[in-house]
């Protein structure tokens, strides 16, 4: 069969809502687009551990500490799971991580914002995990099987995170004057970056049309953003907090994407430092595995 015929058959399967599996034929563009999106998603989970990890040692109660630790651990698990799903497309996790550390791979810009107060942990759960869910629920029906299945599992945990984040905000909103100020400050800081998580406006979105045709994407950026706003505004009202007025600063969006956000440098440096400091450990594990492959002992004795 020639490529045109294969492509036609592929599109017909997509149109019939069939799932594409790793061994199926797929167009190079589809494979590349998925690798890009899934790796970016996996990197986001890993980098996302950093701003929240910032509060593990300082969580204000032991229960909150346990919940936060479990949450950050979940995100690491999502990363591992997504790297695994991406590997079904013929890339290795090690290569993807190299790209992240080299600064040539993208991750969600939201994690380039700092978490100066405890309320930021609440706001991240409520708004960032909330926005992630909006983005990801449609992906549970994504045309690529391994990605769709990963998303089903991940979405369950993200909605847990969202509720826990809201619960932090609720405690603060019902707390002392200082706590309420802390909560409002965090909402002010995270509102616009959360809205930017849905990506550029539809008119500027490079990848949207083809992704929709391939059913890797099912709603446009603006549709999802509007849905998120509708969903979140009443939640803020219930907290007695006010949603910031104004419009999205797309200039800020592009600057953060270009590496000029408040914490881009710190986040990448933290990942690089962990990788470098762990080099001797990974080498030791490899050397040990190598030595203890069957036969080695006999050979050296």
């Amino acid at each position: 069969m020639d490529t045109a015929a294969l492509e036609e058959r592929f599109q017909a399967r997509i149109d019939a809502d069939e799932r594409i599996e790793p061994k199926d034929w797929m167009p190079d563009g589809y494979r590349r687009a998925l690798i890009r999106q899934m790796a970016q998603h996996a990197h986001s989970e890993i980098v996302g551990m950093l701003p929240e990890g910032n509060w593990i040692t300082r969580a204000p109660t032991l229960k909150r500490k346990a919940i936060l630790m479990a949450k950050v651990q979940d995100e690491g698990g999502h990363g591992a799971y997504l790297y695994g799903a991406t590997e079904t497309l013929g890339v290795t996790r090690a290569a993807l991580i190299e790209e992240l550390l080299a600064g040539s791979a993208k991750y969600s810009s939201i994690f380039n914002y700092p978490t100066p107060t405890w309320a930021d942990i609440g706001a991240i759960g409520w708004l960032v995990d909330g926005a992630a869910i909006m983005n990801q629920i449609p992906l549970c029906r994504c045309s690529y099987g391994p990605y769709a299945r990963a998303m089903v599992r991940i979405c369950k945990e993200e909605s847990f995170h969202q509720r826990q984040g809201y619960d932090i905000m609720l405690a603060l909103a019902r707390g002392t004057e200082a706590q309420r100020r802390m909560a409002q400050g965090a909402l002010d800081r995270w509102w616009w970056p959360a809205l930017m998580m849905f990506g550029p406006p539809d008119a500027e979105s490079k990848h949207s049309a083809q992704s929709m045709r391939w059913k890797v994407k099912r709603f446009t950026n603006d549709e999802l953003r509007e849905r998120f706003i509708e969903f979140t505004v009443p939640q803020a009202e219930y907290l007695g907090l006010s949603i910031p007025q104004g419009t999205i600063d797309w200039n800020e969006f592009h600057e953060v994407l270009r590496g000029n956000g408040p914490c881009n440098r710190e986040r990448l440096e933290a990942r690089r430092r962990a990788h470098q400091n762990g080099g001797w450990v990974r080498e030791a594990a490899l050397a040990y595995a190598e030595k203890h492959r069957s036969g080695y002992r006999e050979a050296v004795q």
């Binding site: 551990m49 690491g76 990363g79």
Partner: peptide
């Protein structure tokens, strides 16, 4: 957490 030598060790 977030700074271990490999993802498995973070977990």
């Amino acid at each position: 957490i977030g700074h271990a030598p490999a993802l498995e060790e973070d977990l």
